[in-house]
């Protein structure tokens, strides 16, 4: 009998700086049995523990085919992640998981995939895009849409440029407030959908500010994509990840176990009310 809160020591074997304040840590469980038993799906997350400080939910961005080595991209945003910024190779951290439902990558097979992100980038989506590229022949065209307030907010700029060069892949970028370096589109993210050439049979997956995703869902609906073919990854406070601590509730949903990925059909009604 184990408490669901039991965390397992994992060693950091690599650290990569994505940009100032965003780091990717590669971890391996210290216990070989824990390593061998761990399996996950694309879009699931782990609870990552900093000794003496606390735990936060972090999505797994590496590929499910290699569950022995897990990559977690962490944005330094609060008390716990502030400590994580100082982590380095060799440090031992706590990991438990995986939790949540993950992206509907099986359902998306054989279809065009529209990926919408916004703001300061979204680690779960980077994992998803990499997942699709590693199985490129299983999916139709890939449409990546990303909107930022200012060009400085565009993280992973090289990655977008790299994705743009991939076959059957289109990248649509926009900013509200351009500078001289900006050679993509200008305007809010929803305007990108004018250019989007995705069939109504496409499946959409989104991650970013909820207001952006709501607007994107309406724009995609206008393109003929069904409410239950649009998915969004939500973010809430989580302390347990198993539906017991109560923090992540979004009306009837526990974002930790019913999500974090929800169909637009499931949450459309909820997004009309603020403060739910």
């Amino acid at each position: 009998m184990a408490t669901p809160y039991l965390t397992h020591p994992a060693r950091i074997v690599a650290r990569r700086t994505e940009t100032a304040g965003i780091y990717t840590f590669t971890t391996r469980f210290v216990d070989p049995a824990a390593r061998a038993a761990f399996r996950f799906r694309a879009g699931q997350f782990n609870m990552i523990y900093a000794f003496g400080v606390g735990e936060v939910p972090i999505s797994i961005v590496s590929d499910p085919e290699d569950p022995a080595t897990l990559e977690h991209t962490i944005r330094i945003a609060g008390r716990v992640t502030g400590v994580m910024a100082k982590w380095d190779v060799g440090d031992v951290v706590g990991v438990r998981g995986p939790y949540g439902n993950g992206w509907p990558v099986e359902r998306a097979r054989g279809r065009d995939v529209v990926i919408v992100t916004g703001g300061l980038g979204c680690a779960p989506v980077v994992g998803l895009i990499n997942y699709i590229f590693r199985r490129r022949d299983q999916y139709g065209d890939l449409h990546i849409l990303h909107g930022v307030k200012t060009p400085n907010d565009l993280l992973y700029r090289e990655r977008f440029d790299q994705w743009r060069r991939e076959p059957r892949t289109r990248v649509y970028l926009t900013t509200d407030h351009p500078d001289k370096s900006w050679h993509y589109r200008i305007g809010v993210v929803t305007e990108l959908f004018d250019e989007l050439a995705a069939p109504a049979s496409a499946i959409a997956m989104m991650c970013g500010p909820e207001a952006m995703m709501r607007l994107a869902a309406h724009a995609l609906r206008a393109k003929g994509i069904a409410d239950d073919a649009m998915f969004m990854s939500l973010e809430r406070r989580m302390e347990c990840a198993v539906g017991m601590c109560g923090h992540c509730q979004y009306r009837e949903n526990f974002v930790c176990k019913d999500g974090p990925v929800f169909s637009w059909r499931a949450v459309k009604e909820l997004t009309r009310v603020s403060g739910l």
Partner: peptide
């Protein structure tokens, strides 16, 4: 719920 003890390399978590 847990007692987490620092060790020479890392830590050990016990229920």
């Amino acid at each position: 719920l847990l007692e987490i003890r620092r060790e020479r390399r890392g830590f050990k978590a016990n229920e």
